[in-house]
């Protein structure tokens, strides 16, 4: 019987396959304990998620109900005064992210095309490796690099466009990886069918491969946008906060949601604390919206 006899007799091979009686106690206890542990790990991981979302929602939703929140800025509003809105910060975040995407997406898509359709040998391996390194680069390092180029070397001011440039570095790897995955999924038969019709390679990629992979690419862009919008470090280095609306990326400080949160963080006064949670909720909603959109698009693409 398998009840591993605790006899100290080591010589005989234990009659493991002796019969159908249950497992040794120790083994089934271990199995049950580990099952509980694994379930507990999952539940444990859900705790902070629920806790954070609840905290931000319950403390932040009040101000969001007021339409002024969406339509006005914080111009002239001191920490002890209630009122004002987040329009200036929402605008800044959206504009900076949009400009970032305009620059990052073409570079990233072409890099992915290179990796899948052209790249062979050493250079391709180097590109793939560097994309991974770029994925792991801390956002504060990306920001310092742009600072070293934009401010120290060229002598420009800390403005929204510099923030966008730093965000480009963070967005490229996200879009490269998701695009690459999708391009690899495009069946080779499609390419060959196109070549067989006498279509040149570039047209095959542009007309056949990219459209087939488009929804996946869009998902990557949306997820990339969601990531860069929540980034704070580049704003600390390159994008000073302003309580007023600024639509220019190249002139003067421009607000963004993370810096609006940071600005209200230091104030111990209730109106500021309310704005802190409200702007955090606004940021989360924005990010989750993009995330959700990305998933919806991905769901459609999965059907293919």
């Amino acid at each position: 019987m398998s009840t591993v006899t605790s006899s100290t007799e080591p010589s005989a091979v234990p009659s493991v396959g002796g019969g159908l009686s249950g497992l040794s106690r120790g083994r089934s206890v271990t199995n049950s304990i580990m099952t509980v542990v694994v379930y507990a790990a999952f539940l444990l991981a859900l705790v902070p998620l629920a806790w954070i979302l609840w905290t931000v929602l319950s403390r932040g939703y009040g101000l969001l109900m007021d339409q002024n929140w969406w339509l006005t800025s914080q111009r002239g509003i001191t920490p002890r005064r209630v009122g004002g809105g987040a329009y200036h910060a929402i605008l800044g975040t959206l504009v900076q992210a949009a400009v970032c995407a305009l620059i990052a997406v073409p570079i990233a898509v072409f890099t992915a095309i290179y990796l899948v359709e052209y790249g062979r040998g050493k250079l391709a391996r180097a590109v793939s490796f560097m994309v991974d390194i770029l994925t792991g680069i801390p956002s504060i390092v990306a920001a310092l690099f742009i600072y070293a180029v934009w401010v120290t070397t060229f002598g420009f001011q800390r403005v929204g466009f510099a923030v966008s440039l730093a965000l480009v570095m963070l967005m490229i790897p996200v879009v490269v990886r998701s695009t690459e995955e999708m391009l690899k999924l495009v069946p080779n038969e499609l390419r060959e069918a196109s070549y067989a019709l006498g279509v040149p390679k570039w047209k095959t990629i542009a007309r056949i491969v990219i459209p087939t992979a488009l929804s996946g690419i869009i998902t990557g862009v949306l997820l990339g946008l969601a990531r860069v919008m929540g980034e704070t470090a580049p704003l600390l280095i390159l994008g000073p906060y302003s309580a007023s609306i600024n639509t220019s990326l190249v002139d003067g400080p421009m607000a963004a949601l993370p810096t609006m949160i940071k600005d209200n963080f230091g104030q111990a006064l209730q109106p500021a604390t309310d704005r802190l949670w409200a702007s955090a909720l606004t940021l989360i909603l924005l990010v989750l919206l993009l995330n959700g959109a990305g998933r919806v698009v991905a769901r459609f693409s999965a059907v293919r």
């Binding site: 991981a45 902070p48 998620l49 954070i52 979302l53 931000v56 969601a226 919008m229 929540g230 980034e231 704070t232 993370p258 949160i261 940071k262 955090a280 940021l283 989360i284 990010v287 989750l288 995330n291």
Partner: peptide, 8 residues
Amino acid sequence: LAAVPSIV
């Protein structure tokens, strides 16, 4: 959890 911005 990965989507929650770090400042939050």
